Amino acid sequence: MQNHGPETYGELNADVYDAWHAELDPTEAVRSLAALIEEGPAGPVLELAVGTGRVTIPLAATGVDLRGIDASEAMVARMRAKPGGERIPVTIGDMADVDPGGTDRFAMVFVVFSTFFFLLTQEEQVRCFGNVARRLLPGGRFVLECPMPDVGRYRRNQNLEVHRVDLDRVRLTAVRHDPVAQRFDGHHVLIGNDGIRLAPASMRYAWPSELDLMARLAGLERRYRWGGWGREPFTAEGGHISVYEKPAAS
């Protein structure tokens, strides 16, 4: 998808993002992240791609010293308009750089809701892992919430799916799959009485074994892999939570 940058999705969708994902309850994610923070070294925590603050704000409310990075000023503006969101320091920038300003090292860096895969090349994803490792304290963790790639749903490398049908609107997704680049390029399509709205999104998926290799190249070791925030066993169904740790001797 031409001219799709790190900020594209957020800048075009900030006004509808919370409504489209209203069913997502952050409670279990916040509880699990807080428990991981308690296990690790003392220090600030950094979230990559804070978005509208769905997880950011309730986690910061637990007393965590939380900082953030996001490429979209529009998404961050939505977060700052919410109670508590204005108090969280956020840097506008590419999450692959892992550069919130300053020289702080972090007890944990995390990215939720598949957003890591908005980094659209293997090179960018490897760079992100390397930059995270450099900013982690010894014993610190990198936590990712990931989908399992579901390439079987794509017939002739394309898919059209109906998500919702109401009296006055229909929501669809239309996606093309590039198996060589491991990339999905698509649109959320909202058709209503007031017209048609397109919301482009692109992702570069990676298998769990590839993430493990990226971590190893960065000097990180896998500590946990769960099937969800409740620490249930990981299977091929659904997604996974992968937790990588910087060795204490680093």
Rank of each mutant, 00 (worst) to 15 (best):
A77Y: 13
A77N: 14
R78W: 10
R80I: 03
G84M: 00
G84N: 07
G85V: 03
E86H: 13
R87I: 08
R87C: 09
I88K: 00
I88V: 10
P89H: 10
V90P: 03
V90G: 09
T91H: 05
T91V: 07
M95G: 05
A96L: 03
D97A: 14
D97L: 03
D97V: 08
V98L: 04
P100V: 05
G101R: 12
G101A: 11
G102M: 03
T103H: 08
D104Q: 11
R105G: 12
F106Q: 00
F106N: 02
F110V: 02
V111D: 05
V111G: 05
V111H: 09
S114T: 14
F116C: 01
F116G: 01
F117E: 01
F118W: 03
T121G: 11
T121Q: 08
E124W: 05
E124K: 12
Q125F: 02
Q125H: 09
R127F: 10
C128N: 10
F129V: 00
G130V: 05
G130L: 01
G130I: 04
N131P: 13
V132A: 04
V132F: 04
A133C: 04
A133L: 00
A133Y: 08
R134I: 12
R135F: 07
L136H: 07
G140N: 07
G140I: 05
F142M: 02
F142Y: 06
F142Q: 00
V143Y: 02
V143M: 00
L144N: 05
L144K: 01
C146G: 14
P147G: 09
M148V: 13
M148S: 14
M148Q: 15
P149S: 14
R153I: 14
R156K: 15
R156S: 15
Q158L: 01
E161L: 10
E161A: 14
V162F: 08
V162A: 08
V162T: 15
R164Q: 15
L167C: 09
D168Q: 11
D168F: 13
L172N: 09
L172K: 06
T173C: 00
A174R: 01
A174Y: 04
V175D: 03
R176K: 08
H177R: 03
Q182M: 02
R183Y: 07
D185I: 04
G186S: 07
H188T: 15
V189G: 11
V189I: 06
L190K: 04
I191F: 06
G192N: 06
N193E: 14
N193W: 11
N193P: 08
N193I: 12
G195V: 13
I196D: 11
R197I: 06
R197S: 15
L198Y: 15
L198I: 08
A199N: 09
